[in-house]
């Protein structure tokens, strides 16, 4: 019950990934809720390694490793090469920690749901489900 599920946010933009991570941490409140173990670790993997727009497998791997506490890692990605790179790493490689999963979720809303759920002590299945469920939140 100790380790939290780690969250990795992969965007084509470093600023988007970092800002969504900040926002999700803030909205999760940092308190953690019932679990009492503090916020889940969140890492941003945005843009390319040289600071441009795109996707870096290296940054994704670093981010996933940095938030892996043994309870699994939920990865959310924005679009195109971000999604494909995570999928390729999961399908063909051994670079990502065991228990890493790409979550099918809207990037911003899903990130908030994932961090809140993980901070409350939810396991990887619960985190993935909460993030995916964010798709069903209609705005009109």
């Amino acid at each position: 019950m100790s380790a939290r599920v780690g969250i990795v946010l992969v965007s084509h933009s470093a600023a988007v990934a970092a800002s969504v991570a900040d926002m999700a941490r803030a909205l999760a409140g940092g308190g953690g809720g019932a679990g009492g173990g503090g916020s889940a670790p969140v890492a941003a993997a945005g843009g390319t390694a040289d600071g441009g727009f795109g996707t870096s497998a290296e940054l994704i791997t670093e981010a996933a490793t940095s938030v892996d506490g043994g309870a699994g890692v939920a990865v959310l990605a924005d679009l195109g090469s971000a999604v494909l790179t995570v999928k390729a790493l999961l399908a063909e490689g051994d670079e990502l920690p065991a228990g890493t999963r790409l979550v099918d979720a809207p990037f911003v809303e899903g990130a908030v749901a994932a961090v809140v759920t993980a901070s409350a002590g939810g396991d990887l299945d619960a985190v993935a489900a909460a993030a995916s469920e964010a798709y069903s939140y209609r705005k009109e």
Binding site: T48, G52, G54, T55, S56, A57, E58, G80, S81, L84, T85, K87, A88, L89, A91, E92, G93
Partner: peptide, 19 residues
């Protein structure tokens, strides 16, 4: 290719070669 291309063709060509 997966780690250095930076666009969608990286994971696609990388997957082709690796598989």
């Amino acid at each position: 290719l997966i780690s250095t291309v930076g666009g969608a063709s990286g994971p696609l060509y990388g997957t082709l070669m690796r598989r």
